[in-house]
Design a protein around this nucleic acid. Structure first.
Lengths: 340, 340
DNA sequence: GTTAGCACTCGGCAACGGTGAGTGCTAACA
DNA sequence: TGTTAGCACTCACCGTTGCCGAGTGCTAAC
């Protein structure tokens, strides 16, 4: 038995209704609200077939039907294939980003806030990963007589700084000449090349400084490979009856606090327009009743970041796609402008 | 009618028991577990008096008694006065801070994590405020041909950077000479003085750059005045029966997401060893069932930050005091060491 | 001042039964 | 062969009822 066009229409109606109400959908509801030309008995037969095919679940015998993960999958694939993406109002997004944010962390934090308040779901925003970035400038800035700030600028515009200990006999000019020397030697190299170069030739005078800088380069690399994550609207999930159970809610919120797992989850996505993971497809027990929708946004020409939304499986997918697309475009333009 | 020594002992027993169990305490429980020399009837009379005095509440007539905010206030004051602060194991704290964190934000974020996992409550960590800080160095680092990174180092060791747009005709050396000029002119000045100085004398050649830097100084000032806030263990509150109601939990978690209110709350505290706000004393409706315990930690000699814990009013105060003290000391030493 | 005794209150819980939404099946109809 | 009306059946939900037990306040005796 295959799923024909009418079955699909009925399934769609069930999903639409369930997304709105979160109440198991009965045959009579469909017959009255959606397929008015068919009687409830006919719908019933079709629903029975759909259940057999694995698209519907029945919480108990005298309740209506609930869409399965398989049903959502079909629904979403159809949505994406037909390009049924609700247009979000770009103005409403731009309005939230009036004041220029200066640091990447501020931007992604703010974006997560905006995304969660627009969708009413939980928002994730990951900064772009920059695994194979090249050094552009290294500069030492005096802080105290015995410490200095190392600033590393890479070609992806990522800046990382850290305070290191220096010998007592260095003034600003001495630091500047070291900076020039390092920049000359390392500019254009990838981070790992730079670390090797530094390890190979250590001028004894600046040995300690160079070692610290080498450490820092390792940090930059590690961090660039990982990407930073901002979460917004954690508590939104509590608005949904799916999470009225406190234990479940706690599991979900704890998951949000351990960002490693989330990063891992987001990193599985390539540079797709949209990735949708429905319930068990996430592979995380706490998210069996959730869907994760992610999209990527471009930063310059080489690296990309990820934005996403976690909500109940009965998510307003079409709307979420639209908002993600609009926000992604906005972020891309925002960051491009920053870079000049 | 005043509260005599025996009444106080009974009140203490009730609070201790309620802190452990969250179940309204009956006269028989006290008579059996705490005041074994007195019968339940006697306890009953005393409890009736304590209720009249406002120290106890009765959820309903056939339930035990629950301590009021007034009771906790008395209890905590006594605790602090007698110095009954449980010693926390400093090792357990140090163990969590093995890897040196490089940026202030990492430090406070990590500290919030540690604090929440040690106490099992929700942790707040605020970075030190530095309202009257002085500039030590300003340096421009080339990023692209038309942008540069401004790094401002202040005497409180706070570093703030931002990317600004520059004219196209500046190379690294030109930027360095501007940096020297700015540092010479502004070093030792407070931020507001620096802004005024810059506004007064604008060399036309670097007009745009200077204006951007002036903006940035304003930012630094604003940010220094505010302090950054990290929250840890938001979901911990869900472990307590007080917040098994989803609506209440949602209100609490939403509050944690809007950091402005929290900052405002923390800023009311001066540089006290401990500040305790019990239930209504917080002045925030979402926190009527919560207590907020804060402590300050020193950064260098001038500025101080705040760490705190939010938990149910029936909090393990003695233990929390101990952990806060130990963590505060650790943070102070950690940051001092960073500064060199 | 303390305590035993007793009547009383009231939340919590389990059992009960009615209601209604929803189903599956069957038989008749187009 | 597909559609539909009819009907018996299931079962979650909800309000009612009654019991249990923890806890209280009061009184009287010690």
């Amino acid at each position: 038995m295959a799923i024909d066009e009418r079955k699909f229409r009925i399934l769609q109606a069930i999903i639409d209704d369930y997304i709105l109400t979160a109440i198991p959908v009965g045959s009579r509801t469909i017959s009255k609200k959606y397929e008015t030309s068919l009687s409830s008995a006919t719908i019933r037969n079709e629903m029975s077939d759909l259940e057999e095919l694995g698209y519907l679940d029945q919480p108990h015998v005298s309740a209506g039907r609930v869409p399965s993960a398989k049903a959502y999958r079909l629904y979403v694939d159809q949505l994406l294939q037909q390009g049924k993406i609700l247009k979000a109002n770009p103005e409403s997004i731009r309005g939230h980003f009036q004041d220029r944010a200066r640091q990447m962390e501020d931007v992604i934090g703010h974006a997560a806030q905006v995304l969660s308040s627009l969708t009413h779901y939980t928002a994730l925003v990951m900064s772009p990963k920059t695994p194979e970035t090249r050094i552009r400038t290294i500069q030492l800035v005096p802080v105290t007589s015995s410490t200095a700030l190392v600033v590393i600028v890479t070609d992806s515009g990522i800046v990382r700084d850290s305070i290191i200990r220096i010998g007592n006999d260095m003034d600003a000019d001495a630091l500047y000449s070291i900076s020039r020397m390092l920049t000359n030697r390392l500019a254009g190299h990838t981070l790992s090349e730079a670390q090797q170069t530094l390890a190979a030739q250590e001028p004894p005078a600046v040995q300690q400084v160079v070692a610290s800088i080498s450490d820092l380069i390792g940090d930059v690399q590690k961090q660039g490979a990982a990407g930073k994550l901002a979460v917004g609207g954690s508590s939104n999930i509590l608005s949904f009856p799916e999470y009225s159970d406190v234990e479940k809610a706690k599991g979900f919120l704890s998951l949000l606090e351990t960002k490693e797992k989330l990063l891992q989850l987001l990193e599985q996505d390539g540079e797709m327009a949209f990735t949708v993971r429905i319930g068990p497809e996430t592979g995380i027990p706490e998210l069996v009743d959730c869907s994760l929708v992610t999209a990527s946004y471009r930063l310059g020409n080489q690296s990309h970041g990820t934005i996403g939304v976690i909500g109940p499986t009965r998510m307003q997918y079409g709307q979420v796609f639209g908002i993600l697309r609009a926000l992604g475009e906005h972020l891309s333009s925002l960051l491009k402008q920053d870079e000049g």
